[in-house]
Computed example of a mutant assay.
Amino acid sequence: MFGPLVAAGLEGVDPDSGPIVDLGAGTGRGVLAVAAALPTADIIAVEPSAAMRAVLMARVGSDERLRQRVTVVGGDLDAVRTPEPFAAVLAMNMIGHLDRTARKVFWTSLARRLAPGGPLVVNLQPPSEAVEVMETPASAVVVGRRRYLGSGRAAPTAADQVTWHMTYRTVEDGVTVAEERVSYSWWVLSEAGLRDELSVAGLHAEHLGPPEAGVYIGRRPAGR
């Protein structure tokens, strides 16, 4: 569903009007979706994590067509140096890393740099409020003889914050050969909260795809 939703969000975007910016690009899933939807677009992929950025660089570097039009930037929105307005922005699976104050700055800066009518594609990951989440499988990938499994649980730590506790296991022949645990803070945001915050920044939000997907498209109205 990810690729089709990104393609739907970018429908009508003129790739000659400015770069497509993927904020929190991770290992490049969004970059590939943008590249497929807009084959001539200039793409700026922004990722603060050095580990994820290394995978992203390897993915881009292995494809000559991507190498010609994808710029990988370490850091955040402020690290994007181009003076051009952004034709579109992806902010997938990243907004929970920002607290309320940081989000206000983020939305305001983003709205200022987004071209009039240009779409912001953003999603909200559960939970939408600070509640406990029981251990839940998150990923399972088989590579060669090994299975790579991820799971996570969350515990509330503030009125608008949870801490995610993730476990990553490597399994071969039914035996766990490696295990790593990671914890990080995540600020929760409801749909109503997202709409209110975007509205304050001058962006109008609506659902993109089925409501259960939790994906939204925000736009700065033309002329503003």
Rank of each mutant, 00 (worst) to 15 (best):
V175F: 10
P137Y: 01
V122C: 10
M1F: 14
P126R: 13
A158S: 14
V188L: 04
P137C: 03
S17V: 08
G150R: 01
E135L: 15
E132G: 07
L120I: 03
V80D: 11
A111T: 02
R81Q: 15
A130I: 06
L124P: 03
D160L: 10
E197R: 04
P221L: 09
A45W: 01
V13E: 10
S185C: 14
D42T: 11
R224M: 12
Y168I: 00
F106V: 06
G118E: 09
V70T: 02
Q125G: 12
A79I: 13
G28V: 04
T40N: 08
A158R: 12
G28H: 00
D16V: 08
A115S: 07
R146P: 01
E11I: 10
K104W: 06
S183H: 08
V215T: 09
E11K: 11
V121M: 10
A111I: 04
T136F: 12
V143P: 01
P48M: 10
V141A: 02
R69N: 09
L114S: 02
P211H: 05
A50V: 15
A87R: 00
N123H: 06
K104Y: 11
A35S: 06
A8L: 09
P119G: 02
V80F: 06
W107K: 07
E180P: 05
A91Q: 08
A91D: 06
D22N: 06
H204F: 12
V182G: 09
S128E: 15
G12V: 00
A33D: 11
D196H: 11
G18V: 02
D16E: 14
L124H: 03
